[in-house]
């Protein structure tokens, strides 16, 4: 297989780790060199990145569902085309990221199966429902906005294929973010009903979006090693703070109220949010968010109902190959 072939010369890196190699590896990271698929890497680095990149890919694919929910109901042809193109971009990101994950030695099929079985995680934000058109604006504005905050530092991630994927993904995400904000501007300048729709969407999405940055720094499991390996360059709380500080003036511009009456600006100019309900986050991660079951069911249904199509394509490719061989033998 493609992924094994890439690493065939260095297949021993999953066993006992060579201390000298590990320190060489760290030296390369410290010198800001990029690690490439054929390079030696510690098994834990491989595992961490496989988990992170595949979760990212799953998030793109599952993330097609809440927005896809509005493609057929988009309120103008321009919005319809933009939304369809956006959701298509997300699919493209998913494919691109699965390809990046495959360079680490796990096939897309295995990764997708882990998601369908519920074993692998995807971003908890996609377990919330899109109830009105304003949710489409809010997702672009805030969810894509938060994703960009997370992903821009990943453009400098130590693993080459992931970093390169992120450069392309970030370009498209910032376009999506502007589109989302523009939807919000239109709603906020529209009728009273539209403005209320926009405020209601912000009320529902604000806290889940803050949770997208992950648990607070004191309890984050992966941050230390990820930082050492330059997979992660800013802590969860740092990124969350950057996001809030960037978003507050945007909400003001829209004339919307952030649903955190206790939020205050400190002496450094940072907006300090009220405590986040981490129990809700844990519940959603545990599968108890409002849409966890629906999202997985939709992905499984597409996968199962598409099985006969994929089988047909394989069967046809086999038939064609054997016909070509038979012809060549004549």
């Amino acid at each position: 297989m493609y992924t094994q072939a890439l690493n065939s010369s260095d297949g021993d890196d999953r066993g006992v780790e060579d201390v000298a190699r590990a320190s060489q590896f760290q030296a390369r990271i410290d010198a800001d060199e990029r690690i490439e698929p054929n390079d030696w890497m510690p098994a834990a680095y491989r595992k961490t990145l496989t988990r992170q990149i595949s979760q990212h890919a799953h998030s793109e694919i599952v993330g097609m569902l809440p927005e896809g929910n509005w493609i057929t109901r988009a309120p103008s042809l321009r919005r319809k085309a933009a939304l369809l193109a956006k959701v298509q971009d997300e699919c493209g990101h998913g494919l691109y990221l699965y390809a990046a994950a495959e360079t680490l030695g796990t096939s897309r099929e295995e990764l997708v199966d882990a998601m369908l079985s519920g074993k692998a995680k995807y971003s908890s934000i996609f377990n919330y429902p899109t109830l009105t058109w304003a949710d489409i604006g809010t997702i672009g504005w805030l969810v894509d906005g938060a994703a960009i905050m997370n992903q821009i530092p990943l453009c400098r991630c130590s693993y080459g294929p992931y970093a390169r994927a992120m450069i392309r993904v970030c370009k498209e995400e910032s376009f999506h973010q502007r589109q989302g904000f523009e939807i919000m501007v239109t709603l906020c300048r529209g009728t009273a009903e539209q403005k209320a729709m926009a405020q209601n969407a912000l009320d529902r999405w604000w806290w889940p979006v803050l949770m997208m940055f992950g648990p607070p720094d004191q309890v984050s499991q992966h941050s230390d090693t990820s930082t050492k390996w330059k997979i992660k360059r800013f802590s969860n709380d740092e990124l969350r703070q950057k996001f809030i500080d960037a978003t507050v003036p945007q909400a003001e511009f829209l004339g919307l109220t952030i649903p955190d009456p206790g939020m205050k600006q400190n002496e450094n100019g940072n907006w300090v949010h009220s405590p986040i309900d981490w129990d809700e986050f844990k519940q959603v991660l545990a599968g108890n968010g409002p849409c966890n079951r629906d999202r997985l069911a939709a992905r499984r249904k597409a996968h199962e109902e598409g099985a006969w199509v994929r089988e047909a394509a394989m069967a046809y490719a086999e038939k064609r190959k054997s016909r070509q061989l038979a012809q060549a033998a004549e």
Partner: peptide, 29 residues
């Protein structure tokens, strides 16, 4: 075609169906 988006038999086909849908939407406009 846009009704398929996110539900196609393979991700490559999600891309292709959306592509065709977008072409047709553009023609319609």
């Amino acid at each position: 075609l846009s009704e398929w988006c996110g539900h196609a038999p393979a991700m490559e086909e999600d891309m292709a169906l959306a592509n065709m849908g977008l072409d047709l939407l553009g023609q319609a406009r």
